[in-house]
């Protein structure tokens, strides 16, 4: 979320907000837009490994409580893992 007092935050806080993102292997919460349909923005909880959408929720609603362990232990392989030992 964009800080409501954004003009007052520190350089570090602004960097954190604008530039830095987590790139988790597993559960991620993101903003999507239905470009070729209604044009509305919405949020989704997605598993970055399997691309499976776990849940969607409206823009502005708080993040739903999703058991992250369920997601990250899901039986899906990254391409790297399926290709065996690359030693």
């Amino acid at each position: 979320m964009r800080p409501s007092d954004i003009s007052a935050i520190s350089d570090e806080a602004f960097e954190e907000f604008f530039f830095l993102r987590d790139n988790p292997k597993g559960l991620i919460f993101e903003r999507w837009r239905h470009m070729h349909g209604c044009g509305r923005f919405f949020n989704a909880a997605r598993d970055t490994v399997s691309d499976k959408f776990l849940q969607t929720y409206k823009a502005g609603e708080p993040k739903p409580d999703i058991d992250a362990t369920v997601v990250t232990n899901a039986p899906v392989e990254t391409y790297e893992a399926t290709e065996g030992d690359a030693r």
Partner: peptide, 23 residues
């Protein structure tokens, strides 16, 4: 495999088979 499922190796049959499903 394209469905991102995980293969398992059947040692007796010397073949890769569907293991756990992603979809």
């Amino acid at each position: 495999s394209q469905s991102r499922g995980k293969l398992r190796f059947d040692a007796e049959g010397q073949r890769f088979l569907p293991g756990t499903y992603a979809q």
